[in-house]
């Protein structure tokens, strides 16, 4: 009984405590850099699309709201032909970012993306691409991957020996 009264008293004392609510539109909350908000596609340090259309974000997505199609340029560099996120389905879980092997897809501290029409929540690649590297500067997938693309031949990636001369008899 006394503990009940004490409870009531302690709660009553909160009338004089500071309020924790942030008065949102007037007062912007501080968002952590790793806040999981609007999803973007980033560029690599050379200013080209980081996304290699590997489909891992799409398969990791628990609500299946990412659809894309891979294609290649004439030099064999792979990139998404289209890349679509249906934000009306997205739950901002961040699994896509975790799955991404190239740091291309990243979640950003931006949540102000409400729309009056659901259709406007469907973002295409043009809407998702940002002009920057996001949280992971300096990483370029094609510099470490063994695939040859325009401007980088076989054996020119990091930690790669020059291509083998199959006809050589040297051991």
């Amino acid at each position: 009984m006394l503990s009940n009264l004490r409870t009531i008293w302690l709660v009553f004392k909160h009338a004089f405590a500071k309020r924790v609510t942030v008065q949102y539109p007037e007062e912007k909350p501080a968002l952590a850099p790793r806040w999981r908000g609007r999803i973007v596609l980033t560029l690599d340090p050379d200013g080209q699309e980081r996304c290699v259309a590997c489909n891992l974000c799409a398969v990791a997505c628990p609500v299946s709201c990412i659809a894309l199609q891979a294609t290649e340029d004439e030099t064999g560099r792979r990139y998404p032909e289209f890349f679509r996120i249906n934000f009306s389905r997205c739950i901002f879980c961040g699994y896509c970012e975790e799955a991404c092997p190239t740091y291309a897809i990243q979640l950003t501290p931006d949540f102000e993306m409400s729309e009056y029409k659901r259709q406007n929540l469907v973002y295409e690649k043009e809407d998702l691409l940002v002009n920057g590297q996001g949280k992971y500067p300096g990483y370029n997938f094609y510099r470490v991957a063994g695939l040859a693309i325009g401007g980088k031949g076989k054996g020119e990636a990091e930690n790669e020996a020059p291509p083998v001369d199959v006809r050589s008899l040297v051991p």
Binding site: N55, V59, V63, S64, I66, L68, V122
Partner: peptide
């Protein structure tokens, strides 16, 4: 069971 993109593949035509 891993089929992906179900809710986005046709979202450019209609979001429903």
């Amino acid at each position: 069971h891993r089929y992906s993109g179900r809710t986005a593949m046709n979202a450019n035509i209609a979001v429903s």
